[in-house]
Design a protein around this nucleic acid. Structure first.
Length: 348
DNA sequence: TTTTTTCGACCTGTTACTTCA
DNA sequence: ACTGAAGTAACAGGTCGAAAA
């Protein structure tokens, strides 16, 4: 399938314009990056991919229009209900949504916390008194011993390269629900962390900075994966729609050809009407008006108006043209994810 | 001023562990 | 109790950009 298509002409001002590589990688414009700086750029990159690096092939800019979404049966933007359902179908909570207070409440009810956390402190953290009502803002009391090697020391994983692991195999330890929820909240605010933020989060959650860093890396990867899946599904539907459009146009073309054969005088049309290139068999306008934008007036060229029973759909009833399909810049589906926000400078 | 080196941050793919049906 | 799938923390290797030499 040839994708050498320029889809949409509004790239210059579309904040959510995409550059789709053949590998479905998505990128943002580099001039925007230059304006917003590295931090913001990276936040966009994680969300939309890095076409320039990930795919050497010529990128295809794709702008998806809003009108196509309903025609595809794609609720867009995905309703929160949809997202919730998606996540509810899985085990975890919606990582893209703000963890509600009920999450913490549920965590309090979840007894797994007690055997998950290795220490009594962890058990205390899961008590209703600790988690109900609001997010904990300090997890230092939890069983997260981290590298300190306290009583619950095996809860925090370790990296041999930056921690004295004693040479033991790595131990993967799950974060508590509260910790995950808090990290989610942070991720909603900024998908990337500067060192200060990382340290602050680590301190607040009683994790090692490396753990916070890894969590954010994995979180970005999950978001990107989810977005890729959404994009893939959406483009599949776009492809189906365009295939159908192509089929319809081919049929219409065949009808017009037949009509020309039967009633040649019909084709003696004003210069503004479409004509067929005999060599490439492409419909082209031989007037100054763009062919796609100026279909022949139904009153003068519609075969149905002249009788014969073979009728092309009037312009207002036709499915949108390819160009029109992608004329709007703001309707690419996006996996539910936090809106990247410019980070405050680290110094502030 | 240009080139090379170093370093930190990040991405991508993978592994290993946990949880659940 | 066992097992396979799914989720995810942790890791390894690579790229890139900025700063220093």
């Amino acid at each position: 399938m040839e994708l050498g298509l320029s889809l949409g002409e509004t790239m210059a001002d579309a904040g959510r314009d995409l550059v789709l590589g053949l590998g479905m990688g998505l990128g943002v414009r580099r001039d925007e990056e230059a304006e917003t700086g590295r931090e913001v750029r990276r936040e966009h990159e994680f969300g939309a991919g890095r076409c320039g690096r990930s795919s050497p092939e010529p990128a295809v800019r794709l702008t998806l229009l809003p009108g196509l979404v309903p025609s595809l049966g794609l609720p867009w933007p995905p309703s929160s209900e949809t997202s919730r359902h998606l996540e509810a179908s899985t085990r975890g909570f919606d990582v893209n949504r703000a963890p509600s207070l009920s999450v913490a409440g549920a965590a309090a009810e979840d007894e797994e916390e007690q055997d998950d956390a290795a220490g009594a402190a962890a058990a205390a953290s899961s008590s209703p008194n600790n988690s109900a009502g609001s997010f904990p803002t300090d997890f230092s009391a939890q069983g997260q011993a981290g590298t300190g090697g306290g009583g619950g020391g095996d809860r925090a994983g370790s990296r041999a390269s930056d921690e004295d692991d004693g040479g033991s195999a790595r131990k993967k330890l799950r974060l508590s629900k509260e910790q995950s929820a808090f990290l989610e909240e942070s991720f909603k605010e900024h998908a990337t962390l500067n060192p200060k933020q990382k340290l602050a989060l680590a301190k607040q959650l009683n994790l090692r900075p490396r753990q916070v860093e890894v969590w954010f890396q994995n979180r970005r990867a999950r978001t990107k994966l989810k977005q890729t899946e959404v994009d893939c599904e959406y483009l599949k539907r776009c492809c189906e729609t365009l295939t159908e459009e192509n089929r319809r146009l081919q049929k219409e073309l065949a009808e017009l050809r037949a009509l020309k054969t039967v009633h040649p005088f019909y084709m003696h049309l004003p210069a503004t009407t479409l004509s067929m290139c005999p060599s490439c068999e492409r419909v082209a306008s031989n007037s100054s008006a763009p062919a796609a934008a100026a279909p022949a007036p139904a009153s003068s060229s519609s075969p149905s108006a002249a009788g014969g029973g073979i009728a092309a759909a009037p312009p207002e009833q036709r499915p949108s043209s390819f160009a029109a399909l992608f004329s709007s810049p703001l309707n690419r589906p996006q996996a539910a994810q936090p809106q990247p926000q410019p980070q405050a400078p680290a110094s502030s």
